[in-house]
Amino acid sequence: MIAAKFNVWRGDTGGGAFTTYTTQIGEGMVVLDAVHQIQAESAPDLAVRWNCKAGKCGSCSAEINGKPRLMCMTRCEDLPLDQPVTVQPLKAFKPIKDLVTDVSWNFAVKKKIKPFKPRPPDHQDGTWSMQQEDIDRVQEFRKCIECFLCQDVCHVLRDHAKHDEFIGPRFFVHTAALEMHPLDTEDRLSELQKTQGIGYCNITKCCTVVCPEHITITDNAIIPLKERVVDRFYDPLKKLWRKLLGKS
């Protein structure tokens, strides 16, 4: 056990400030444990979201020493405990209270993305055949736990607040999972280009770096989507071809 200091942001929609708490850190404790300990010892109204405590639900996102991370998967002993640990809410979203932010925008964005639309079943019993190698990529995307750390780190949202014109890396991953689903027949390219702002992404890869599920967001999801958009909307030959075929 060693005593460690935590600078935790306390506040609400109207603003806030850091409060310093000292608490005992035992073997294997994660930052979420420390926050809970502070809550039980001295700050019962300290607001924090969590569920699984095992990196599976994506609830406990915060910025620890300035880095977007899951509190439940950040071990205290991996941090320099000789200095205070700062814990603050995600910056890309409006604060509600303390470490809890208003992430409702993400749910609204997702609702606007066209849902899965499968081709007719392959078999009489209403099922399909798919080979494992054809779904590996989609399964990678479907590992997403919706922690929104990638949204938090992306400068288009974080610094430029383009929430109205840009859906963010999480929803590029979601769209890629649908577009690359072997059974899906929907077309989502036009809105990707027009209203969902895939062009704003300049491939900094910050999102890939923070993803706790190790999804290669940029290389595997965003770049292939960008390529599809380019093929469709900017390749003059393809454009002409489609015109001739009568497709818009």
């Binding site: 079943p121 019993d125 099922t127 798919m130 080979q131 779904i135 399964q139 649908l178």
Partner: peptide, 17 residues
């Protein structure tokens, strides 16, 4: 099976089921 029709992607057997 209904979940598959709604987009779930389960691990597959060699014959694609």
């Amino acid at each position: 099976r209904e979940l598959e029709a709604w987009g779930a992607v389960f691990d597959r057997t060699k014959d694609g089921r």
